[in-house]
Design a protein around this nucleic acid. Structure first.
Length: 263
DNA sequence: ATGGTTGTTACACAA
């Protein structure tokens, strides 16, 4: 039975983390790897290193210094016009076709510290991106097997954070965000593949702050997501939060999430 | 108690 495995990872600089990616790819062999926060221009992306990993196909949406997303793949990629979710035109969205699937690779703004759009432009920006996503997916055609993956910078459920009560007023877990993200998911008719595979109340985290001892305190959040259209979600037979890279030397603050689907 | 870290950049900003 043929399968395709797709991983998503906010790498927080693809250039300084290239060796971490190589180790992850060697150990987990994703067919497709969706990266966020590559933090480089297209021409600075380390293509040769990815070719050496067997990921010879690429679709890069870079930007100098900040943000930036990329998809690398063992299989040929067909670039697709990406939806314009970001009103500031930052490099936060890429879209590709691969093996008959459509993949949207997203990097939703973090949103700053203060969860009030009236006084925090970054939070207002985050909410505007969510609103655009909701409109787009509500109107999108549903006849194509589609994955929406990436760092959505929202931990939607109470078991997606180390303390629901203590994070209710913390950006990434406020009601306007968690309800907004759920509205996007429902508008598109997507299944949250991680929760379909690993139901609550199991705690699931994909990010731990750089501040403090991540492993001992374990104050994580599930910010990174893999959503699928229902027929595709039904064909998911493996899903893993790969925590080991968080313990490697000079890690990203996010870990990879990988899902496998029967084709 | 109101910290604490990281990456890119250039004399902060974003996360």
């Amino acid at each position: 039975m043929p399968h395709i495995s797709v991983a998503t990872w906010n790498i927080n600089s693809v250039r300084i983390r290239t060796e971490h990616i190589a180790r992850f790819v060697s150990e987990h062999q994703p067919d497709v790897l969706c990266l966020q926060e590559i933090k480089c221009r297209n021409e600075e992306f380390p293509l040769k290193a990815f070719s050496a990993m067997g990921l010879r196909h690429h679709h890069i949406v870079g930007q100098k210094g900040s943000h930036g997303v990329a998809v690398v793949s063992k299989h040929p990629l067909q670039p697709i016009q990406a939806p314009s979710f970001c009103p500031r035109s930052e490099a936060r969205v890429s879209a590709v076709g691969v093996k008959g699937l459509t993949i949207h690779n997203l990097y939703v703004p973090a949103g700053g510290d203060e969860p009030d759009p009236a006084i925090n432009d970054k939070f207002a920006h985050k909410l505007e991106v969510l609103a655009r996503m909701r409109s787009f997916y509500a109107a999108a055609a549903r006849d194509q097997a589609t994955l929406v993956v990436g760092d959505l910078n929202i931990a939607p459920g109470e078991h997606d954070v180390w303390s629901h009560e203590q994070l209710l007023n913390v950006v990434s877990h406020t009601p306007v965000e968690t309800e907004g993200l759920e509205a996007v998911r429902v508008a598109g008719g997507f299944i949250d593949v991680a929760r379909a595979q690993k139901p609550a109340p199991e705690k699931l985290y994909s990010w731990w702050s750089y501040r403090g001892d991540w492993k001992t305190s374990n104050r994580g959040r599930r910010l990174d997501h893999i959503w699928a259209t229902p027929g595709l979600a039904d064909r998911c037979d493996r899903l893993d939060f790969v925590a080991a890279p968080r313990g490697w030397d000079r890690p990203s603050d996010h870990i990879p999430v990988i899902a496998r689907f029967a084709l």
